[in-house]
Write a protein that binds this DNA or RNA. Structure first.
Lengths: 183, 183
DNA sequence: TAAGGCATGTAAGACGTTACATGATTAC
DNA sequence: GTAATCATGTAACGTCTTACATGCCTTA
């Protein structure tokens, strides 16, 4: 059995949680998510869910709503076993490694900008973070109201992350307004 | 001019900082980095640096060391301009969005595991984070010693991130050992 | 009745990965 | 001498993306 990708495993998890669910609804989960890592494009989701079905990890039933038919997916026992194995510790190597973050990556090279623009950069980043934090908090609240406790916890991970970046950027800002930083 | 990818822009930045530098050394930067987002594989870096050279963003000089010849790269004025435009605010949309993080993703579905395994998961994640924090701190120290102040700041972003995840997981752990959390 | 959301797909392409391949140089 | 590192590449592959395409259903 070929190794499943993160996207495939995530879809498997979504189906486990939300079954019965259509591919369209799965896409929506990605599209509305505050994480932009996966686009949830049709070109990725539809073939992927077919693939998982062929592998016996998902099962589909065709339903109807008026004249319009659609495929509802559920997870199979085999799918559940695969998902559980993915979740069960130990985590694979490097699972805790720091991620790619556009703001951090730019920071490496910030010395290229003229000094005023460096401060402008930090301020811009801080305001984007505030916006993001608002959005993620709204998701946390929504999950809490729905009693989706693990989703709420997961979303709080993102919140903690964003807040940590705010603290970091405030520190950066202080350093930049101090003298003694060149290059 | 086609939009450059994050990898291309990052390479551009590395060359700006470290010129003259060989493709091999650029690869090393990725391979030794605590971020695993880019592998720094030969198949990505060599063609990429050729591409950037063709586009006039990098320039290469062939050098020699004994019998062995190699290409040393530097950044052109055009390359510097592109890099500066990338850095200069405003940041593109979604630059602050939360990233994909394997531990967080799994958290959504943790309810699938039997209760004891959930705690084991959190403990495993915490120990991986500790290890990662040690590594990132070492990088911070190294950059500080070398006077690479922006690299140090950038690495501190990662440190803040990891520490925020530790706090998050400790909170998760408390909730899991408390009663009243199901599904 | 028109716009927007629901629902399903296909095609072309870019990007990056793994794996393979070669040979010189340096350090032990 | 031999192992590790330096250095440069190529080939096949998979995955995901963007863009295109269609048609039904609901609501204003």
């Amino acid at each position: 059995m070929s190794q499943l990708t993160n996207l495939e495993l995530t879809v498997l998890g979504i189906v486990w949680k939300k079954a019965p669910i259509t591919a369209y609804r799965v896409r929506k989960e990605f599209i509305t998510s505050p994480s932009t890592h996966f686009s949830g494009s049709a070109g990725s989701i539809y073939p992927l869910m077919e693939r998982l079905t062929e592998q016996g990890l998902l099962e589909s039933k065709s339903g109807k709503r008026g004249k319009r038919s659609h495929l509802s997916y559920g997870i199979t026992d085999k799918g559940k076993a695969v998902l559980e194995e993915w979740l069960d510790p130990p985590l694979p190597e490097k699972s805790a490694a720091i991620t790619f973050y556009p703001i951090r990556t730019r920071m490496y090279f910030l010395g290229l900008l003229p000094p005023e623009r460096r401060i402008a950069f930090v301020d811009d980043a801080l305001s984007m973070l505030s916006e993001e934090i608002r959005e993620v908090k709204a998701f946390c609240d929504e999950y809490r109201e729905q009693g989706e406790q693990y989703s709420e916890l997961a979303m709080e991970s993102g919140l903690y992350f964003l807040q940590s970046q705010v603290r970091w950027l405030k520190k950066v800002r202080e350093r930049l307004t101090d003298p003694g930083l060149s290059r």
